[in-house]
Amino acid sequence: MTATSQDPGRALAVGAGPTPGGRKAPRRRRRHPLTLDYVSFFVMFLGLPLGLFLVFVIWPFAQAAYYSLTNWTGFSADFDVIGVSNYLRLFNDELFRTAVWNSARLALVVPLVTISIALIFASLITVGGSAKGNIRGLAGSDFYRVVSFFPYAIPAIVIALMWRLIFDPNIGLINGVLTAFGLGQFESYPWLGRVATAMPVTMFVIIWGMVGFYMLLFIAAIKGVPAETFEAARLDGAGRWRTIRSIILPLIRNNVQTAWIYLGIIALDGFVYVQALNPTGGPANSTLVMSQYLFRTAFTDGRFGLASAMGVVLALVTLLFAAIVFSVNRALGGRDEKGSSG
């Protein structure tokens, strides 16, 4: 390996060559002399992408893992390797445990609620229309489809800042409307400043921004299901709710799984939203998430070593999350999908 490191392209081509052909590869390689054509093909289509992937994805990961074992400040080239003491420190840091728990709460609630709403909307727009005649969506569904996509077209930071103003205790729209309806207890109520409401409001804002896109994803998936399936279900007497549960959900299972993982990753990060809504970490740190604590540790405290350790933990939690989603899907009978979709 040390010898090949001189020439990434060639090294990868040789290393990666056998993979597609499996065990047959060695024989095939003997049949192909190393002509310029043959080598350049592998360099261009396997070596280059793989090389870029290694340099820009795997190498930074490896670096972060290495730095997590050091006391690097991030501002000088000097540091010492201090073993796992950054990790020990993290496990003893109550604030970090709070941040992990907050991130976990986001990862549990945001995908669940977003997918439920998106699925219901998508069903209404595609097959939720009149029970007579062709299978179709609600009247005006084209309009809803466009409108509900609007939030996704707005950058996350703008969404968060906008909602922060809407939830402002004294000049915000929400409290203005609530007090206008005679709910006096909401006068000057600090939605983002109380433990009871800060996290739910944060979740609401993320969900609000995400529903439109996942609705479109599910609409596309539902359109891929033959209309006869829905007609048959209707003939068998299935109502709308039954159709969603027994027809749509099983048939677009893979899309839901993908959505779940994407949303989970967004929620586990969540940096833009929490930083804009509650830059301080929220009341009693109730909205402080891992990425926010990581940013603070790295740039405010000048502890890139410790921050890298947080990054590694965050990456592991994210992988764990994906693994859980996969196994839950499989446990719920997703196995039959495996063969068809690979």
Partner: peptide, 19 residues
């Protein structure tokens, strides 16, 4: 680099957390 055994070319300098 040697310790990681990664085949890296000159592009290394552009890595994200670069030393």
């Amino acid at each position: 680099i040697a310790a990681m055994g990664l085949p890296l070319g000159v592009t290394l300098a552009s890595c994200a957390t670069g030393g």
